[in-house]
Each structure stands twice: as structure tokens, then as C-alpha cells.
Amino acid sequence: MNKQKDATIPTIPAKARLSRWFGRNLIRIYAVFGFTYLFIPVLYTFAFSFNDSGKSNLIWKGFTLDNWKNPCGAPEVCAALGNSIKIGLLATVFSTILGTMIAFAIGRYAFKGRSSSNLLIFLPMATPEIVLGASLLSLFLVFHINPGFWPTVIAHVMFCISFVVVTVKARIASLDPRLEQAAMDLYANELETFRRVTLPLVAPGIAGAALLAFSLSFDDFIITNFNSGTLKTFPEFVYTSAARGIPAQANVIGSAMFILALLIVIAGQFVGRRVKVSK
């Protein structure tokens, strides 16, 4: 490969080359800015989890690992986290079960009232959270039910159902009906077909829906604020302590959740790839 530079090959002037490179990569440059915007507060939160701040975590005072070593150090923070996790898990289980059943009904069967069913699923998503939260609180008050743990769980299940239905329905819609027909053709009755073919194939959609439900529930503030009464979830803890300064432990928990979620996703992808590669 000893090619001499051939004068007969026309060269592109450097300036034109630069503008062409810029033109081709404009969208990538733009994307880098977009991601920077997304991650500035994440990095800020992460950095300030190491702040040797004392009470108010507003100004950088020095690096320390104490907050990470003692994440429950600030009063109430771990109790709030525990509440959020408990509520999140319960809301996930119930909304996933109810939503999956609805998704199968709408995604699989033609029946009278199917389009109004779709509307009923769409409406909670088109209603502002504040209206959902406020109206549910009014109902609880009418029936003299005190706001608290279970009313919050109910509120979360209510707004998660629609998201579960939409996610699972999309997966069901992408399922080739011939696979179920093939199972029936191969001597599997309706129940076996569901257990051995339909469910395993829809399972990734259900898992995705459950993950979505948990993250929606875990991060919800507005609806929770209306229905939790004296109970405090993690977002509520952050909101109420914002006035007097958020303890760095809250940053630790936020960062830890972020890292945990990222690890789970990456591990999931890694396992998925390994399964594909191992022929």
C-alpha cells in the first residue's frame, strides 16, 4: 500500500471539508447538548451527596464520604424512603395485575364497548395529576376515610393502571396470532396455550410495565401529597425539607437509586446479549 499522492485526484478544500463535517454531525452535536441539559442536575445531585455540609446542603464545604456511610443519618429520610418503597411495591403489584388483565381484554378480543374501554383508559392520563389527587381526596373525605398509607396506595394504583395497560397492550399487539394458533394446532388447549406461549411472549411487556409503574409511583409527589396525610414519602420529604435545606443524605439516596437502576438495566442488557451470542 504505497500510494503516492496523485495530483490528478481533486482534493476538497479544508474549509469545505470542515463545513461538511459540521453539517453531517450537527445533529450529533445537538444531541450532546441535549444530554448535557438532562444530566446537569443529576451530576449536581451526585456531587453534592459528597458535600460535608452539615445541615443545609446549599454551598460546597468540602468532600466527605460520611453521607454515603450513613445514609440514614438525617432524621426521617430512611423512614420516608421505606414508605416510598412499600407503597411503590404494592402499587406495582396491583396495577400490573389489573392493568394486564385489561390489556388482554382490549388487545385480544373484539367486544361491545371496546372503544369506550379505550377511552376510560385514556382519561386518567389526560387528567392533570392535581385533579386526580384532589378529587380522590374529596372522595375519601366524603366517606370519612383518613388520608394515609392505604389511600396513597389506592391513588398510585389508579394512576398507574393506564400506563400498564398501554405498555402491555403494545406488546400484545406485536404478538403474531399465528403463534397461538400453532400452539393449539400442536395439542395445547386454551389454558396451556396461554401458559406456554402467550404469557412467556408477553412477559417482557409486563415486566416493563411493572418497572414503569414502580418508577411512576416512587417519584410521584402531587397525587401523594393530597392523599398521604401525615405519612411522608421520599418525594414529600424532599419537598418539605427544601425550605430549610435538604440534608445531603437525600442526595445520597437519589444518587444510589440512579446507580442501582442503571446497573439493573445494563445487567439486563448484558444478559440479553449473552443469551443471543451463545449459539
Binding site: Q181, L186, R196
Partner: peptide, 29 residues
């Protein structure tokens, strides 16, 4: 019902179960 008939089908586009191995696909029936 389809599973009550001693009749099997080779489907258009095959309809092989994507979540099962070839062995388990064949063993299904």
C-alpha cells in the same frame, strides 16, 4: 377444537415459538 384433531399445520411464515429452542419447538406437540 384445533388441539382435539389429529391434524397439524405448517404455517405461513412458520410460526415457530421464538422463546423456545428448536428442540422444544419440535417437542411441543
Amino acid at each position: 377444537r384445533p388441539y382435539q384433531r389429529p391434524i397439524n399445520t405448517v404455517f405461513q411464515n412458520y410460526a415457530l415459538f421464538p422463546h423456545l429452542t428448536i428442540f422444544e419447538n419440535i417437542a411441543f406437540g
